[in-house]
Simulated scan of single mutants.
Amino acid sequence: MQTTVLKEIIAFLFGRKYYANIVGTKGTAEMQLCSFIFLTKEQAAKHRDELMTTLSFRYIETISFRSRKDYSQPKRMASR
Protein backbone atom coordinates (compact mmCIF):
# COMPACT_ATOMS: atom_id res chain seq x y z
CA MET A 1 0.00 0.00 0.00
CA GLN A 2 1.58 3.25 -1.11
CA THR A 3 1.20 6.27 1.06
CA THR A 4 2.21 9.90 0.92
CA VAL A 5 2.78 12.51 3.57
CA LEU A 6 -0.56 14.11 2.74
CA LYS A 7 -2.39 10.77 3.07
CA GLU A 8 -0.76 10.16 6.44
CA ILE A 9 -1.75 13.63 7.69
CA ILE A 10 -5.36 13.05 6.60
CA ALA A 11 -5.30 9.60 8.23
CA PHE A 12 -4.04 11.14 11.46
CA LEU A 13 -6.67 13.89 11.47
CA PHE A 14 -9.73 12.05 10.12
CA GLY A 15 -8.80 8.38 10.20
CA ARG A 16 -8.28 5.85 7.42
CA LYS A 17 -11.11 4.94 5.07
CA TYR A 18 -12.56 1.42 5.31
CA TYR A 19 -15.54 -0.41 3.82
CA ALA A 20 -18.09 -2.85 5.20
CA ASN A 21 -21.13 -4.62 3.77
CA ILE A 22 -24.59 -4.61 5.25
CA VAL A 23 -26.32 -7.96 4.79
CA GLY A 24 -29.80 -9.25 5.44
CA THR A 25 -30.85 -12.71 6.52
CA LYS A 26 -33.00 -14.20 3.77
CA GLY A 27 -36.58 -14.81 4.79
CA THR A 28 -36.53 -12.21 7.58
CA ALA A 29 -36.45 -8.43 7.90
CA GLU A 30 -33.24 -8.64 9.95
CA MET A 31 -30.26 -6.64 8.66
CA GLN A 32 -26.81 -6.43 10.17
CA LEU A 33 -23.32 -5.15 9.58
CA CYS A 34 -21.03 -7.85 8.25
CA SER A 35 -18.15 -8.73 10.57
CA PHE A 36 -15.51 -8.15 7.86
CA ILE A 37 -13.79 -4.80 7.39
CA PHE A 38 -12.28 -4.20 3.96
CA LEU A 39 -9.39 -1.93 3.05
CA THR A 40 -10.58 -1.31 -0.53
CA LYS A 41 -13.88 -1.00 -2.32
CA GLU A 42 -12.80 -3.82 -4.65
CA GLN A 43 -12.45 -6.22 -1.70
CA ALA A 44 -15.94 -5.26 -0.53
CA ALA A 45 -17.30 -5.82 -4.05
CA LYS A 46 -15.69 -9.28 -4.18
CA HIS A 47 -17.36 -10.13 -0.87
CA ARG A 48 -20.67 -8.82 -2.25
CA ASP A 49 -20.35 -11.16 -5.23
CA GLU A 50 -19.68 -14.08 -2.88
CA LEU A 51 -22.78 -13.15 -0.85
CA MET A 52 -24.91 -13.34 -3.98
CA THR A 53 -24.17 -17.08 -4.20
CA THR A 54 -25.26 -17.95 -0.65
CA LEU A 55 -28.70 -19.12 0.36
CA SER A 56 -28.56 -17.55 3.83
CA PHE A 57 -27.76 -13.87 3.24
CA ARG A 58 -28.62 -11.14 0.80
CA TYR A 59 -26.51 -8.09 0.06
CA ILE A 60 -28.04 -4.74 1.08
CA GLU A 61 -25.31 -2.12 0.56
CA THR A 62 -21.64 -1.23 1.05
CA ILE A 63 -20.84 1.56 3.48
CA SER A 64 -17.62 3.46 3.98
CA PHE A 65 -16.36 4.85 7.25
CA ARG A 66 -13.24 6.38 8.72
CA SER A 67 -11.40 5.14 11.76
CA ARG A 68 -8.14 6.04 13.44
CA LYS A 69 -7.70 2.39 14.35
CA ASP A 70 -5.48 0.56 11.86
CA TYR A 71 -7.40 -2.47 10.57
CA SER A 72 -4.79 -3.34 7.93
CA GLN A 73 -2.75 -5.42 10.39
CA PRO A 74 -4.17 -8.83 11.33
CA LYS A 75 -5.25 -9.05 14.94
CA ARG A 76 -3.29 -11.59 16.94
CA MET A 77 -4.79 -13.60 19.72
CA ALA A 78 -3.03 -13.43 23.06
CA SER A 79 -1.74 -16.83 24.13
CA ARG A 80 -2.02 -17.93 27.71
Rank of each mutant, 00 (worst) to 15 (best):
Q2F: 11
T3P: 00
T3N: 02
T4C: 05
V5K: 12
K7H: 15
E8I: 05
E8W: 05
I9W: 01
I10V: 13
I10M: 08
I10G: 01
A11S: 12
A11H: 05
A11F: 02
F12W: 10
F14H: 14
G15D: 08
R16F: 01
Y18V: 00
Y18I: 01
Y19K: 09
A20D: 00
A20H: 04
N21R: 05
I22D: 04
T25A: 08
G27Y: 08
G27D: 10
T28F: 00
E30I: 11
M31C: 13
C34W: 15
F36Y: 14
F38C: 06
F38K: 05
K41C: 05
E42M: 05
E42A: 13
Q43F: 05
A44K: 06
R48M: 13
E50S: 12
M52T: 12
T53H: 14
S56Q: 12
S56I: 10
F57M: 10
R58D: 09
R58Q: 13
R58S: 14
Y59H: 15
Y59M: 08
E61A: 07
T62L: 01
I63T: 10
S64M: 07
F65M: 02
S67F: 07
D70H: 08
D70V: 10
S72N: 12
Q73A: 09
Q73M: 06
Q73V: 12
K75H: 08
S79I: 14
